[in-house]
């Protein structure tokens, strides 16, 4: 694979990788770092890339692994700093006019999901991947993906119902 192939086949994945990383890390800067890291890793093994069936799946697997590593490394010490970061980003989101409270509630509900169902619902409902692709990226059985997806969707629905009842109480 030469630079031109790389630019055609892998570079356009940058937004997908970014969104996936941001969903996992909930932080723009770190997600941007992950994108470049994934590109570098892919470039380093460019000789072997032709052997892979799906470069997109490979890129997403790499993203997933890097994000999980980062989350593992993060655990406690950075928590407070990360909280601040999230607060600043929340303010930035509020400035966006189309980002209503209710949609922010969905985002919160997504954040409350554990890593795996969050990845599944992101890959399916935001990126529109098929079950086979999700199974490949996450290293799961297709059926398990389906079950986890259903559970995650219902979990979000529960939160939406609770939020709405609060809103009724307020009004």
């Amino acid at each position: 694979m030469n630079l031109q192939d790389f630019n055609i086949k892998i570079y356009p994945l940058k937004d997908k990788i970014f969104r996936f990383a941001k969903r996992m890390l909930e932080q723009t800067e770190e997600a941007e770092d992950i994108v470049q890291e994934v590109f570098i890793r892919m470039w380093k093994q460019r000789e072997k890339l032709d052997e892979y069936r799906s470069l997109e799946a490979l890129a997403m697997v790499t993203t997933k692994n890097l994000c999980l590593d980062k989350l593992k490394a993060r655990k406690f010490p950075v928590e407070s700093w990360n909280g601040q970061r999230q607060f600043i980003e929340a303010i930035a989101e509020e400035i966006r006019p189309d980002y209503s409270d209710i949609i922010a509630g969905v985002k919160e509900a997504m954040s409350s999901l554990p890593e795996q169902p969050r990845m599944i619902i992101h890959l399916r409902d935001i990126e529109g991947y098929g079950f086979d692709e999700i199974a490949e990226i996450l290293g799961m059985q297709e059926n398990a993906v389906r079950v986890a997806l259903s559970r995650a969707r219902k979990h979000i629905r529960e939160i939406l119902i609770t939020n709405r009842s609060y809103e009724y109480q307020r009004n």
Partner: peptide
């Protein structure tokens, strides 16, 4: 209407792109 924010959120999130500024 309960389900509306969910699907709006998905649509909106799918259009988010990485900023090219400091890449």
């Amino acid at each position: 209407r309960l389900h509306q924010p969910l699907f709006r959120f998905f649509t909106m999130e799918a259009s988010e792109t990485i900023s090219e500024d400091n890449q």
